[in-house]
Write a protein that binds this DNA or RNA. Sequence first.
DNA 1: TATGGAAAGGCAGTATACTGTCATCTTTTT
DNA 2: AAAAAGATGACAGTATACTGCCTTTCCATA
Lengths: 176, 176
Amino acid sequence: MVEEAAEDQLAIFDLPGHLARRLHQIAVSIFMEGAREFGITPVQYSALSAIRHVPGIDQRRLSRMIAFDRSTIGDVVQRLVKKGLVAAERGTADRRTNRLFITDEGSAAIDAMQPAVDRTNKDLLKPLSDGEQAIFMFLLQKLVHRNNDMSRAPLFPSEGRQGTARAKGPAGDESP
Amino acid sequence: MVEEAAEDQLAIFDLPGHLARRLHQIAVSIFMEGAREFGITPVQYSALSAIRHVPGIDQRRLSRMIAFDRSTIGDVVQRLVKKGLVAAERGTADRRTNRLFITDEGSAAIDAMQPAVDRTNKDLLKPLSDGEQAIFMFLLQKLVHRNNDMSRAPLFPSEGRQGTARAKGPAGDESP
DNA sequence: TATGGAAAGGCAGTATACTGTCATCTTTTT
DNA sequence: AAAAAGATGACAGTATACTGCCTTTCCATA
């Protein structure tokens, strides 16, 4: 019919923006399904992991580290605290900061979730062959890293993956 | 120093789920910047395009067509109506449905936005070479289409890209 | 040392996205 | 025709994401 012919012409489906939205939608869906028993979201998992790796990190550094918006991170942290997975305390060296620590419960939760989380990430790529997966991941990383400064909460290299550039100086060492 | 070593080990950055979230985040950011003068979101643009292509479509079909959640679509439509870009009327043949039509204003808005939208989609892929872009888009489409049924609002083939005309352009599912 | 700029975090407001529930209407079955 | 089953949309509730504004605190510098 006329309707269907019109639908055929819709160009949206092949636009990278639309596909990026769909990929994210699908990734969240697979994660929520695979980690259902733990009642945790992808974002909460990322935050929890980061806090375990950098005990005492403040919210601002956390948001830059995993590219969360600085406004969003407050709510996420609040939920993790409420669940007893994270403990927060006011910084003493800099009283503006909210320093975050993972609890024993939180640490145990991450360990328990590990296999399920690994599985969800594998499942997402399953439609591709091994070779295709490698290529896709390489290009996806390149795209994200090169476009890093295009979002409000860019990932800062020095606070994120490599940490050697400017991480040595300030912050951090008022440890408990 | 202990801190920095710890940060280096954070595995999140290379997980497909995290990168999918970042890619979407970046895509939205580029779109909002590039289409700032039009005051429209990526999702609203998709809905508007779909409504123009299938005048009189109801909300349920629209949500399946562009893979929106059926709960979300109501709000999106409401905003488009409020902006005067879309008109809604109760269906007569099936009085449960909310039939959607694009207004002259809405149609003019799409036309005016076209160049800016094209530019944002180009910009997103700009970090990759032409060859890499083609490969990435091919794999991204494959991934999204094969994982289609993994989210709550899957895109229905019969209402989405191929309709009746599957024969002429099978979307290159297999061959590159 | 006084002061202005900048940083950290909170809060309000808006927009997507999903779950679950409900009322209404349609279609199928009996 | 009456009852059961299914579809459509509305609504409440939760979670990410972002913009803008505000207070508190820190820091550099005049």
